[in-house]
Design a binder for these strands. Sequence first.
DNA 1: ACAGCGTATGGCACTCAGTGTCAGTCGTAA
DNA 2: TTACGACTGACACTGAGTGCCATACGCTGT
Lengths: 251, 251
Amino acid sequence: MSSSSAAPTAKPPMRDALVAAAFRLFLERGYEQTTVDDIVALAGVGRRSFFRYFPSKEDVVFPDHEGCLADMTAFLASGAPECEPVRRVCDAARLVLRMYAENPTFSVQRYRLTKQVPGLRAYELSVVWRYERALAEYLRGRYAGRPDGTLRADVVAAAVVAAHNNALRSWLRSQGRSDAEETVDHALGYVQAAFGARPAGPAGPAPGEAGPAALFGGPVEHPDDVVVLVSRRDAPLWRVVQEIETAFGRA
Amino acid sequence: MSSSSAAPTAKPPMRDALVAAAFRLFLERGYEQTTVDDIVALAGVGRRSFFRYFPSKEDVVFPDHEGCLADMTAFLASGAPECEPVRRVCDAARLVLRMYAENPTFSVQRYRLTKQVPGLRAYELSVVWRYERALAEYLRGRYAGRPDGTLRADVVAAAVVAAHNNALRSWLRSQGRSDAEETVDHALGYVQAAFGARPAGPAGPAPGEAGPAALFGGPVEHPDDVVVLVSRRDAPLWRVVQEIETAFGRA
DNA sequence: ACAGCGTATGGCACTCAGTGTCAGTCGTAA
DNA sequence: TTACGACTGACACTGAGTGCCATACGCTGT
């Protein structure tokens, strides 16, 4: 009656109604105190239909993660072989955070739930694990030739996910009031510094927080296998590390 | 009838019998094809007793993880404030791997199970997450004063866990035939190098793969906030990074 | 308009994990 | 011997998840 043909948006059918009903009840009386029967009763649909749209009760809490994961893997698969690998996976992480930041209230509500329901925490871990595996697989491909390629890929992927989660949780605790992009940029910049790549930025020499140029002149080679580096004391560490790697020929 | 009083070993009561029965059935017909009723029937105990010893069906696959986690947290809590934090958590990770290496056949069997049963993978993730949180909490305490203390703690913990898991899985894939300690030392050494700490070793100046001393003399300070570093070209990168951190006063 | 057909939905019954409860049993101290 | 406390088993119950089938809706061809 109320919704038959004059729906403005074309494609939000029963699925969204189930998500809405579920979150109303979860926030009212808690996740574990809400049964699937309660949800389908409020949504006015059959119980069987719930499990047609969501393989489990936990899935209704993360209704868009499957698509988000697909977007991220598509982003990684979409060429750009000239881009430095660590930076590429950091951009992928930024993509994920942007999806969270699109719906701040929803993300904060879900954060409250997952924080206090152990079952949901476990489920979220399995979701995050799939993101991490996608990043690691990409890096394994990029590091295919290197000696410890898979090790480096796994470690970098884990570090990126950890930095992303650190920033995300910080942003969620602020109720979505802080700047999500800025927070995650800072966190990912730390990872990029640790692994010897430039932090994000429009490919310029000084990417935002970098400040003054790190080195006065390039490294000078001595005849007896010695490298001399001269650096300002307040130069950002990642910049120095990068120059060292260049001098050592380990880009 | 068959088992009433002549048990030779004194302290493996019902719990170990349940684990043994469970793994026999899991390996025979698979995890999901085995019900709790099957397990208790084979073990000859009541169904209710299973859930007295294991809160869930998944817990029987990881019967000793609660104790292992307790051991690790105890290790981290046991003083040693003079030890470098990253090295400390690496040693904690080595502790965990040693527990796996104690029962190679059991660990390999469990690996086969968790590899192909999604529910067990998810459960293992929640277990690993608790280890990672324990490491991160320890590091947060050690990095309390630093500017990005919690970020650094989270990232380092994730990197250590990733390196540990990389080595563990490599060892498990080799059916326990490779040297677990050596594998994990190599993987953790990579993390320690990335985060500017000495790899493991008996606290000597040249820890195994280090080779020659990295620096000819210490850094020389110039009056106008400049640091000069002189280094051999073939020096290990982690060593150079460490010296730089020292020179920059960011130990 | 009508028959045919594929898809989406609802209802029903079932399995199985996990929990609360209570009765029985065993070992030990008084 | 009795009394007490811890362990165990049996039963009943809730709730998640699945298989199956009947029905209703929308579309197509005649």
